[in-house]
Design a binder for these strands. Structure first.
Lengths: 263, 263
DNA sequence: GAGTGTGAATAGTTTCACAGCG
DNA sequence: CGCTGTGAAACTATTCACACTC
């Protein structure tokens, strides 16, 4: 996934690779499940299976945190839960604000995982005055005008944006100006933020499009041909355009270009 | 994010890198916006800025698709929109089913981006009989018992799971058995699927935890100390466990281990 | 001159395979 | 003996920098 790439000036960096960081929550979830079942220890093999990765990767990941296992035995579940929680900063409570309490925002607010260990919803904010005061997930919605005050009063540093695309950048700017330095963005827009602010984006339609790509591949494969799928009505969408007539190198990767190509 | 890693047996693979594929939807969105404003051409620099990447990366990405630009000029917007759409398989219509029409599911169904170019909701399914028949986003919810028939009748190959975690694997198995080969999973669980099935996962709490990690880093930085943040109530969560007393190598990365460490 | 396309250099990630510890 | 921890190898991704084309 994508994040603002301002991550570490590499000064005295303890340097846990980003890819590893992204998997720690996965391990933590699997470990928590084991902990609830009072399982005392796990091997890298077992835990890896539960987290859906392979064991070499898991061991390498853990090696960045320290030597927390016991050779010949495995990892102590409770101890690892604690170490990973601490590494992720979940031993403290992060107040968050969520802006945009529409369909999606309300669903997110109601979502269990949101209020999960480590996070606390300081406020739900919306620009729509008719939403204000109405409780969502037991928390009354407040007006977005209170944004700065709420962030300041609660020491909020993480914001969630679930507004329509058009409002997102503006909301983002306000959040950042008020002191938020991490943003989780559900609006289908690229946010631009100053250095030092992290943005992560969750985008439904992008995920679907990636799946469609692979799906198409599979279909082409079955048919034994690469370009089995001909553009149907798409031609209509393509306007007449200037022609790069004699293309030198590699052309359309399917060997040749479809009829709709400007020619 | 994560996908089932069964991607290509490397046979005559046209091999567009996965990282590139994941960015194509981003480019497509930016291009679509330009297209709506009737902008005829863009340079890699401009488009990269709009998509939030750097221009070298963008050019490299496009070079995997073919030589679609014109030196000294840039890229033809309409032409590129078409080429990327085709590459992503969006010139055909993908019927999808969504299972689990709770808060989140309903929000997703209502989400604009869902019905966006290339996708069509064939059905919304829920296990709760009292939901059945009720229209969500204009589509009547159907009972999950109809899953197999719906998938078969509509040739659905992409499924979206928005059920509670407990039901997800079971739903997944049914989807796969019925012929679905791509799954977008919103439930906070690792799904296990046979080879050839792609899974992408969207997980709110994981994203937040990743942000918390970076946030903690920033805080530690300011304070000038690495372990500025002491574990507060977390100790309570940690049970007494067997002690890896004399650890040989590298220990807790903050130099030394906190009091809660099993000793 | 402006801007693409791309080899080569670099950085980051995963996998292998095995030494070494409990 | 079982399983961790980790160097080294393999692979993937990003960035650089410039030849080449329009």
């Amino acid at each position: 996934m994508a994040t603002g790439r301002t991550h570490r000036p590499a000064t005295r960096s303890r340097g846990i690779p980003e890819a590893t960081v992204a998997r720690l929550p996965l391990y933590l979830r699997a470990l928590t499940a084991l902990s609830e079942r009072s399982v005392p220890t796990v091997s890298s093999e077992e835990l890896a299976a539960a987290a859906g990765v392979n064991s070499a990767k898991l061991r390498k990941d853990f090696s960045y945190l320290g030597s927390y296992g016991t050779r010949g035995v495995g990892y102590d579940v409770e101890y690892l839960v604690y170490q990973i929680s601490r590494e992720l900063g979940l031993t403290q409570d992060w107040p968050i604000v969520m802006v945009g309490i529409g369909n999606l925002g309300a669903a997110l607010a109601n979502y269990g995982g949101f209020a999960s260990r480590g996070f606390r919803v300081a406020a739900l904010l919306d620009a729509d005055a008719s939403m204000v005061g109405r409780p969502v997930a037991g928390i009354p919605v407040r007006h977005i005008d209170d944004l700065e005050k709420i962030i300041d009063d609660n020491g909020v540093s993480i914001g969630v944006i679930a507004t329509p695309a058009g409002a997102a950048q503006q909301v983002c700017d306000r959040l950042v100006a008020a002191g938020v330095t991490s943003i989780l963005n559900f609006a289908p827009t690229v946010l631009s933020v100053p250095d030092g602010v992290d943005v992560r984006k969750v985008d439904l339609s992008i995920e679907l499009q990636i799946l469609a790509f692979h799906e198409q591949r599979k279909a082409g494969e079955e048919a034994g041909v690469a370009d089995a799928v001909l553009p149907p009505a798409a031609a209509a969408a393509v306007r007449e355009v200037a022609a790069p007539a004699a293309q030198g190198g590699r052309k359309g990767p399917d060997g040749d270009v479809p009829a709709v190509m400007p020619a």
